[in-house]
Amino acid sequence: MIPLPGARVGLVVGDVVGHGIAASATMGRLRTAVRTLADIDLPPDELLTHLDDIVTHAEAERSDTSDEIPGDVGATCLYAVYDPVSGVCSLARAGHPAPVLVRPDGTSNVVALPAGPPLGLGSLPFEAAEVTVPEGSLLALYTNGLLAAGDVDERTDVLRRHLASPASSLDALCDTVLRTLSPTPGIDDSTLLLARPRLFGEDRVASWDVPVDPAAVAEGRRHASVRLTAWGLEDAAFVTELVVSELVTNAIRHAVALIRLRLIRNETLVCEVSDGSSTSPHLRRARLSDEGGRGLFMVAELTQRWGTRYTRAGKTIWAEQLLPTR
């Protein structure tokens, strides 16, 4: 589970070829690579493409003196990103079993997800799919070792039935499923990752459309200040208004479509400004004679972290600050 900007979360599960120390080392390398690529905030299909390139290049650099197939060639991976604001989960897989979605009414299904090739083969592109996750649903990611002992379709049906059964906690549900499908250690490892995503309501998210007009910057600051007062976060108003001013001003200068300002109250306070342009501001150190170039530097100094997330419709510049302690 990987925390991502904008209160989103990345869920990843994977498997490598073989067992023992070599396979563990391979898993560690791929785990580190996934974490690094996730920090760049790539979409699931692009993340798997880069991960596949890493495996392919590593294989090309190896000596061919050994006939043993390395564990990262043929490894599988499933990467999902859940957005608690929209309730949408975006997923892509590289030769890995598709996850199971259990809805609040007890119905379940295997998520319809394009099957990409295992890592290191470089034969087919990876495709992402989006699924809306209703409030109170359960998302199950697992390795194929959970279904290895028997007919895959039959064991998938057993998995779906047990995932829909009542349980006191997700830990208890994991124990029940593993005891049923893997009562004794088998020839393959079994991994099960359960997540019960939550939706953010209007009490945690606020957004406004911003016209492409310099006069709209002051209105954006006012909207943010009013919302922070309603949330009881007046102490964060000064930094938030500065962040809004800088990010909205930059968007107005370079925007080619409608600008949207959004505040998200989670464990941190997130300020996002989205527009239809792919042009992103870059942090630089302004010289004494420069008349500009200091705004983004102040944003970086006054917030916990900031960054850019690219989408098919443009980009989102975000800044995250710790909530004031009372």
Results as ranks from 00 to 15, higher is better:
H254I: 14
E68R: 12
V12E: 13
E241N: 15
G145V: 01
G74S: 10
V13R: 01
W318N: 03
V9W: 10
A22K: 12
S86Y: 02
R8P: 12
I21W: 00
E234N: 05
Y82R: 00
S169E: 12
R103N: 00
R160K: 14
E135P: 04
L101C: 08
V210F: 01
S165W: 13
V177A: 03
L228C: 09
L194I: 04
L121R: 09
D203Y: 06
T229S: 15
R155I: 04
V248A: 14
L119Q: 02
E241G: 02
V17I: 12
T316L: 09
A80S: 05
R31C: 04
P84V: 08
V273Y: 09
T184C: 09
V226Q: 15
P211V: 02
R103W: 00
L11P: 07
R196W: 08
P197I: 04
A22Q: 11
E61I: 00
I187L: 15
K315C: 10
G14P: 00
P185M: 08
L323M: 05
G14W: 04
G10F: 02
R260C: 03
D15P: 01
R294V: 11
D153L: 10
R285Q: 13
V81E: 05
V217G: 11
R221E: 15
D235H: 11
V244D: 13
R265V: 11
A58G: 00
E59W: 12
V17P: 04
L141F: 10
E61P: 01
V205E: 15
R326D: 07
L228F: 12
L47Y: 05
V243S: 06
